[in-house]
Design a binder for these strands. Structure first.
Lengths: 344, 344
DNA sequence: TATCATGATGACAACGTTGTCGACAACATT
DNA sequence: AATGTTGTCGACAACGTTGTCATCATGATA
């Protein structure tokens, strides 16, 4: 079916090994034969068989990304960053989606990756329940993992976004604008990311001597609809609220909509800030203030770190796992501004 | 490093081949030895080496998806559908992102996939320039492709969304609402998808005897910002416009924002409809009417068709390439409704 | 008893690469 | 002239599977 080294060798009148040398341009081959072999390769359309190479070299030049889902913006961007950098580094990426319903298939997924002999894993799913218990010495020996927002662990590489820091920036901005009773619409509570953002919110309120009561908390699930409902319950429970921190932009948009329906005019009666800077957040009415994260770049960085580790391991050295943290930036638009109703 | 068949064989006191038989439970193995082998496998944590298996079987149980990008909602959903179905069918998926800048790397990408001996390709990128010229007999022999929104071709499988039909539904709805001068904000003109939607818009205007002039067309690039600018120029050029069909929701949101700034009240002075039904489109103000497409399901279907073809090919049969078309559905929300200003 | 099907198993050669080692010529050094 | 060095190249054995065939009991049939 496909052209092999041996086909090319026969055609060029040399040994298999010589062709192999030319392909990987390694070792000494005379200019003359190199030309001849190159011509044969060109002519026959030879493409090396990576499977065979992987088998003998004991590495597949493949890294797996195990993802929770691509339907949100940030995860998609992360995967794009991973794909781009992997391409540039000469690695292929194997995409695996975790089933959200089943807990127990983590083990299955991992076994499948071992079977495919991937050189490393990028774990791109929130730590919920015991779904990261697989990170144990036995597994670590098989393939090095890099975990997004992972727990500190001396044997595991991690790239993280400092969500608590980001949340602090967002809420501090609300405080600076003069808002005083600041509620929060959280993400899915079982996601560590959501927990971190809630902590940041707490930090700022406490530092500023503002009220920080459970009645200011409404739980969302990252969807716009949940944001809408959350703001409704919040306003009902605490009519004195004058601002709200939505833990992502979609929920922020839901909140904007709920506010309008409740007759609360954003910027005058209510400050709103989101988190994630999704496309479109700029075009809500009013435009949604938010936190920006360079997630694409984080994906690239993840691959860089992981590949460095893989290469090192192949050379017998054991690179100490590095850690990379990204810090979000505040994007001030209109929804968080406090107009004091002056222009009424 | 890792446990092999031969390790298990030695441990269980049988031949390699027998272990192989147990693993693939094929052939006749006595109950007794089967138990013994199974125990050994369990005990040693054996995982078959898919690389080696692929090498000898001449198929990798891997399919590649070549994508244009994951930053829009629909493409992400498509990839999710692909990943899910591939998982269920026992295939792994290799994710490749096309560089948008370079045209010429299509050939490189393809060669890399041949090198990895993928069993099939899902081509998930708009046909722009000559970037689908690779679909030629030579390539077809190497690995069967399935193309999203591909051109009709007796040798290539295709799954499509009927974009022209969807656009017709959207614009007809505007007409039904009583809007008469209907502009369009197109997608990137070089994308066939954008062209199809524009054709659908034309169809309906002509069928209804409405004006269908070039001055009603403004070109966007799928981003919200481009939608905003497009509506501005449109309103400037043709102040008599009373409705606009935005070829995706993001541009629709931009248009909504531009309308507000221009003092045009949506629903009264201007009808707006988008396309794609992204999360958040429901929470614009006013909520954006749009077209819904079941893209996740389309991704699953793509894998089903492709895998069927691969299996058939492996059995020597040559399954005729099938075709699958999905039809979008209208989602009526507020932005497209015509209030006639009654409640003024 | 001789022959034959059947069931269970293993030896061995593929698959397409790469690493190791040795062969051999050409040339430089003592 | 004998020896060492260098540059080219090929034979051969891995890598971990699977398919093909042969082997060898065992029990059934003629």
């Amino acid at each position: 079916m496909s052209v092999t080294l041996s086909d090319v060798a026969r055609h060029a009148g040399v040994s298999i090994k010589t062709v192999s040398r030319v392909v990987n341009n390694q070792g000494e081959v005379s200019k003359d034969t190199r030309q001849r072999v190159l011509a044969a390769i060109q002519q026959m359309g030879y493409q090396p068989n990576v499977l065979a190479r992987s088998l003998v070299m004991q590495r597949s030049y493949t890294i797996a990304i195990v993802s929770w889902g691509l339907d949100q913006y940030s995860p998609s961007r992360f995967v794009m960053g991973v794909a781009r950098e992997a391409d540039e580094q000469g690695y292929s990426i194997l995409l695996t989606l975790l089933r959200r319903s089943k807990q127990d298939n983590v083990e299955l997924v991992l076994n499948s990756l071992v079977s495919r002999r991937v050189d490393g894993i990028i774990w791109h799913a929130p730590r919920v329940g015991n779904n990261q218990d697989w990170i144990c010495p036995e597994r670590l020996a098989q393939m090095p993992p890099l975990v997004l927002n992972g727990l500190p662990n001396p044997h595991v590489m991690t790239v993280s976004v400092d969500n608590r820091y980001g949340a602090r920036l967002a809420v501090q901005h609300l405080v600076d604008q003069g808002w005083r009773r600041i509620g929060i619409i959280t993400g899915l509570v079982e996601h560590p990311m959501a927990a971190q953002r809630t902590l940041g919110w707490q930090d700022v309120l406490q530092e500023n001597g503002l009220e920080c009561d459970d009645s200011l908390i409404a739980n969302g699930d990252w969807t716009a609809q949940s944001g809408e409902i959350a703001l409704e319950t919040l306003l009902h429970r605490r009519p004195d609220i004058d601002a709200v921190f939505a833990c992502n932009d979609l929920m922020g948009m839901g909140a904007l909509s709920a506010a309008a329906r409740a007759g609360r005019r954003v910027c005058r009666d209510l400050g709103v800030i989101g988190y994630e800077n999704i496309p479109g957040s700029e075009y809500c009415s009013p435009p949604l203030s938010t936190m920006h994260q360079s997630i694409f770049e984080l994906g690239r960085e993840a691959v860089r770190l992981l590949v460095a580790r893989i290469q090192a391991r192949a050379n017998g050295e054991d690179l100490p796992p590095e850690l990379h943290i990204a810090y979000p930036e505040l994007v001030v638009r209109q929804s968080s501004l406090h107009c004091n109703g002056k222009e009424e």
